[in-house]
Design a protein around this nucleic acid. Sequence first.
DNA 1: ATTAGCACTCACAACCCAAGAGTGCTAAAA
DNA 2: TTTTAGCACTCTTGGGTTGTGAGTGCTAAT
Lengths: 339, 339
Amino acid sequence: MALDKRKAQILKAIVEDHVKTGLPVGSRAVARKYRLGVSPATIRNEMADLEEMGYLDKPHTSSGRVPSDRGYRVYVDELMTDAKLSRQESAMIESLFRSKIRDVVSLLKETVRALSEATDYLAFVLGPEYETTTFEAIYLLPASVGRALLVIVSDVGVVENCLIDVPPMSREEMEYVSNILREHLYNLSLDQVHSKAQALLRRETSRYSEIIAQVAEFLTSMTEDSETEKLFMGGTANLLNQPEFRDVNRVQGLLEAIENGSLIRNIVITQSQTTDPAITIGQENEVDKVKDFSIVYGTFRLGQSAGRIGLLGPKRMNYPRAVAIIRFCEQMLNKHLAR
Amino acid sequence: MALDKRKAQILKAIVEDHVKTGLPVGSRAVARKYRLGVSPATIRNEMADLEEMGYLDKPHTSSGRVPSDRGYRVYVDELMTDAKLSRQESAMIESLFRSKIRDVVSLLKETVRALSEATDYLAFVLGPEYETTTFEAIYLLPASVGRALLVIVSDVGVVENCLIDVPPMSREEMEYVSNILREHLYNLSLDQVHSKAQALLRRETSRYSEIIAQVAEFLTSMTEDSETEKLFMGGTANLLNQPEFRDVNRVQGLLEAIENGSLIRNIVITQSQTTDPAITIGQENEVDKVKDFSIVYGTFRLGQSAGRIGLLGPKRMNYPRAVAIIRFCEQMLNKHLAR
DNA sequence: ATTAGCACTCACAACCCAAGAGTGCTAAAA
DNA sequence: TTTTAGCACTCTTGGGTTGTGAGTGCTAAT
């Protein structure tokens, strides 16, 4: 099962050539471009072996080989050599973090944009799950007659808000309610906050119960929606550049899955992440629509919780580069979100 | 130039048939399906006239006719009959407005989703421009050590926020600053607020000047970003369903234009909207990438300002239906955003 | 003014053919 | 025993040809 050195070299050459050209690669090409000092015939023998081991596929009886999913797997696990970002690329991304750090959400959005522009793939960021974040602050503010603004600030600086209906009340009165909320809900995780609000609701029979009910409802909806809400994507059009997707049907399903956000579940549910930038290749993905694609994603810390940042592209993806760029973004995010 | 009754009938038939099938339509089909009591030969003569007038095109010398941009134009202006939404369709959309009206932004997002699911086109909503909105409220709130949360509520209930760095200060002190801001900036439009903040900045030399500078900067960025920020889209994948876009290249450019939001400028810049749901067809669009598409969009009021809601699809679009559904959404939005 | 009839055009699909790339196998060479 | 040269074979790809069908424009009859 283990690959001897020459088989490894050949497999590596095939993967990298195929990634570059998109075409099946033949014995001649391997011999010529990646001079191993042996003839095409020898390479053909090795290729036949590699195919038998399940690392290569043949699109049809008589044309070059293409890496199989398992082939890509051993490539990323054992064969590939780390890539380095070019000076200007890293500078480009760094500049992004230097300038506008208005708030967490736009930082994440900008990161996605940079990521999708720097690659030919689809980039995504998945914000932290609310379950584990805690509250720095919660406010109820007068917004207009009959309406109040509920503002919730999480420990990581993500701000959520909603307008709720309130009976007419004075500024002082609202401040009083706001204080009740703050006192009871401060520094709890969303889970806790939620049950606490319910308890508060049962006890409180005054005219404020209506308000608290609305707050509770909003908290519920925050947890429910968090999946879809905190996902940002960019570079959808990039996918259409890939030669393998000249045929619309293959992207179609993916785009739909992406739009309704079911893509995320794939990533979150999938086997626990082992390597740092985690890589899932083709069939390894749980979701059907993504079985033609690969995903490279990493994790960044955000307060108590964690977010994900990743790239989605064809299996024929430049893995070393994807890994390098994701690593870099992870670092930048961790650094700038730490303070 | 004016169309006699029969020419009108024929043009209408051709447009509607072509919208349904996507294929060029011939004289026989018109005669058979839309029984006008005349023979195909007669229809052929009329079609030749219509072509000469510029309302029809021939893909090639000897196949059926296809409506030209001008053909579609007279169709939407004079020929088409209003469509009505089916009971369940309108119910579907209405239910959306009934349930969750947490805040304006998510209402708009949901509307887009519903719109793109109800049609085969790409749906978009363009939020109100900030220039003309005024402020209901502005708050500076303690968020965590060294950071404060700036919350701005516009008259229409759109909430913006950002975190800014502040020197350590007591709760009372911050409330004082918050009051300064409120006093000076209340109920002004963003334009006014902005210059006012600058004035304030020049005068204020105390330790708060740093804060005010940050507020001013945020206000600037709000106006600048407003274009890209307040655009929501859904149903990109729908476009790939259209038979005319089996060829990737045609959608490619559009998708890119869409992603970076230059599509909006097209709509905003374009000639002043005359009809209620405005319709721009193919070449009528200012932006090159959209010249193969049609856009149907309407306006909804939001406080002092206005937003746009629309559909983007192939020229071969079901215009009556698009108009009907946009109208309906306009109504719903106006009704629910009025309070 | 309308229609039937007919010759003509053109896209499209099917088919064949040749070229080219690449393979697997066998037998010779190292 | 491993490597290599040689060769027959396979399969894709692109170009060219052909036939079919849909649809037209025109002319002559109604």
